[in-house]
Structures are given as C-alpha cells and as structure tokens.
Design a protein around this nucleic acid. Sequence first.
RNA 1: GCCCCCAUCGUCCAGUGGCCUAGGACGCCGCCCUUUCAAGGCGGUAACACGGGUUCGAAUCCCGUUGGGGGUGCCA
Length: 471
Amino acid sequence: MSPPPRLRFAPSPTGYLHVGGARTALFNWLVARREGGQMLLRIEDTDVERNRPELTDNIVEMIEWLGLRWDGDPVHQSERLDLYTAAADKLLAGGRAYWCDCTPDQVQARAKERGGPPGYDGFCRDRGLERGPTTALRFRSPDDGSTTFDDLVRGTVTFDNAKLEDFVVLRSNGTPTFLLANIVDDADMGITHVVRGEEHVNGTPKYLLIGDALGLGYRPAFAHLPVLVNEQRKKLSKRRDAVSVADFRDRGYLPEAMVNYLATLGWGPPDGVEIRPLVEISELFRLSDVTQSPAFFDVRKLQHFNAEYIRALDVGAFVERARRFFAHADATEAVLRPIASLVQERVRLLTEVEPMVDFLRLESIEGEIDDASWQKGVVKPGERAAAMLDAAVAGLSSCDWEAGAIEAALHGAARSAGFVNSEGQVQMSKAQTSVRVAVTGRMVGPPLYESLVVLGRERTLERLRAARAKL
RNA sequence: GCCCCCAUCGUCCAGUGGCCUAGGACGCCGCCCUUUCAAGGCGGUAACACGGGUUCGAAUCCCGUUGGGGGUGCCA
C-alpha cells in the first residue's frame, strides 16, 4: 500500500479560471479523492507585472463552485520568495547558474544573426558577471546526457540536455520564474503526482534538472493531460474562446453537470455510463486511462448533460437554483411554482426558466406577442382560428378553473370550431395553437391547460378577446 | 528551424492481435407517444488518415508519409 498521494492544482492569477484549468483541477481532485490523498491549492503569483490579485478570488470561487474543494490553506508563492532565492543562491554557489545581462532583444538578435535555433546562446556563461540591477540568473544546462521521466499518460519521455538552452531562474528584479518556484514548491510540499496540462511537457526536463542541481532527490509521478481545443483544433484560449467558468455559471449551467462533462474529456468510464455522480467517477478514474489526444470542448454535449442534471433535481431544488437567474425573483417564482416540474423538463439552462414563464407573470402580453408565431399560429389558420378563439372564450367563461375542466372546455371549443378529422376526432394539436399564441405570445411553451390555471380566468379571457379583436 | 506529442463516426469516449460485418454518448434524420415544445420509446446516418511491413490473422505491433497539436519568454 503506497502512502496517500498529494496533488496540487497550481493556477496563475493572470486570467479567469477557464474550462481547461477546471479540467486540470478536476483530474487532480479525482486522483486525490480516490486514493484518500490530498489536493492542495497553490497560487503561482511570482510575476508581479502580470499578476492580478482579484483573479485569485475568481479562481478560488470557481473551484469551490465546482465542488472541487482543496485541502488546507491555499499556498501563495508570493509569500514564499525566500525559499526560491535560497534555492537560487545554492544554484549559484554550486556553479549551476550564472548572471547574465543580455536583454531579450540582444538574445533574439544574436539568434537571428546566427541563423540557428532561437533561444539563448550561453553568451554570459563564462563572463563571470556579478549580480547587478539588470542581471538575471540563468541555469547552466548540461551540455550532454539526457533527461528522462515517466508520464502516466504518455509513457517514457526523453530529452537531450544539449537541446536545452540556459534558461532564466531569477529575473533581474529578483523574483523567481515558474520553473524554479515550481520544483522548489512541489518538493517542499511533498507533491507525489504532478498532474497538469500538456503544455508543460517541454519544461519538465528543465524542472527536473533544477531539482537535481539542488540535490533535492525529488521525483514525482507525472501526468500531462491532453489540451482542450476549440473547433479549429487550437488550444482553448481565454482571449478568443468563451471559456470562463464564471460565464458558464452565469449562463445557467450546473456545477455538477460541468464537472461531469469535463470528466469525459480525455477520459471515459469503463462501463460507458457517462452521466453519474463525481464520487462514482472518482472511484473509476485512473490517470493511466487518460487519452493522449486533444479533446474538443463540445458545448452541445455539455448542454445535454446540464439538461439531464436539471431534470434530476427535485422540484424544490430546481426552483431554488433557478431563482438566482430571475430578474423578477418573487413574481417569477410565484407563477413558476405550480408548474415547476413541467418547466423543469423543458429547459437545458437555468437561464431559460424565467423567459419560459414570463407570460404568466405579465399583466398583459400586449406588444409581447411574437410576430412569426402570430402569423403562423393565428393569421394563417384564418377563420378557424377566429372560431376557435370565440369558442374558447365561451367555453372558458363558465368552466371550473382547473386543468381537467379547462381541457374539456377547449376540446369542446375545438370541436365546435371544426378542428375534427375525418374520423370525427378532435384535432387538439392544431386547435390549441391559436389559443396558445393568444395567451402566451408564442407557439411553444409549457403545457397549456396547466398554464391557464396559473394565469387565471380573467387574464386568459382578456388575452383571448384581445387576439380575436385583432383578426 | 528545432524539440515533444497526437491520429477510430461531425464531436467525445470504448476497443489494447482473432469476440469488430468496429460499440456507447452528443448531434443529426425518421417513426411512435403527444394539447405545442420538451422528455421518453424505437429505428437510422456516420469512422479505423494513407503506404509499407510483422503475423495464420491487425483498428490494435513496427517503419514511413501526410495531416494536426503543444513547446521553443526575465508568462505560467
């Protein structure tokens, strides 16, 4: 029995949490959860220039919203700078790093001149520079040998050390770069599994080399997850793709649906049952089963998951959760309650709820009638629609005001208006259209009879008469 | 340019040498149910990139080609 694993999700507060980051957090969480381990949260905020502290709040809030609770307090790299500078000193003292005063422009210019590969050429390696206001500390990469690591997802990966340029570990402003802080922290925090995006594969040998130079004797297990891509098969980007987790929340997605869907990107349950609780997924999940190819983030499939999760809610919870999306909270809730279960199975997003019952809340739908619906549902049927409206007014004026009686009344109205087939059966499907449009303003909506019960006799008749008058 | 990686239906996932005339899910199409729309039921559409090997046998192993992606920062 191996000791419980320790994982970490290490976002950088340079952008909102997006679905790719959420998926990474999820996979970390699943492993920790399954094996009784821990998932720590580490905020990688060493770049003071790009950092936006307020984004840390967004990241933390979204992880919580998704239900991927981490263990312990979040670790902020900005509060641990001493650790990294101490490591840098050690590198320097051991001759494994040196100061360099080349500007990025100079590095690039030389590379261009050389005609060879871009990247740093080791210009300052043996210049014996002292630390200065414009010097950065570079790691002296080995000139030979190779660095190999095992990846739970991609197998054994090997890099030629000679291909690795001397990279910066300490910026001229004294702050550490990602690679240095990363391995120092992973080792210090006792991380056993480094689960992150595929974009980090190339940096892994550098990360490992720093660790070796530091004499850390640290070797975590790695799992580099395939990236999530857009329809152009490019890695999802915060700039060009609408992938902010907060936006999905605001568009009416349920966190359960979100994480469940994310779990099917790059991984699939052995029994093929995709929609299931996270705890169940965590029992089935294995990093070694993760796919190696990029996955397209398909919003339509996400919507299907969301609809399934909405339907699975009990009615009370459904209303409760839809409520935060209401512009007219109390009024909408009042008209929704009686037909909530009917609405519930008709929406894919929580944001669709209020618009679906707007006609019940509104005092009048004068001016709210959809023109295309009016043309198709009332004008086109012509005289029969007029007859139906008249008969409906008559029938609904005196019947009991409950769904069964309303149905009977409208059936009678349909018959008298001539909506009968050759066998003498009432064609309610066609007959109800004009009534529906007159009352709800649209061709589609929740079941009519139940809706009328909520609307009330007065407003129903009013709308029916108003529609009739326009013909 | 160089480094790393990937390649099964439109999309996601199964498949780890014979059970594959390739399975499930989303989408799409049709039918049924039905007061609209959904939901549900039934059926259908649709893929192993290409070329060589290895083998009695390849979607599964190897090589190449093509295509795609990731990286190549004093970002992470």
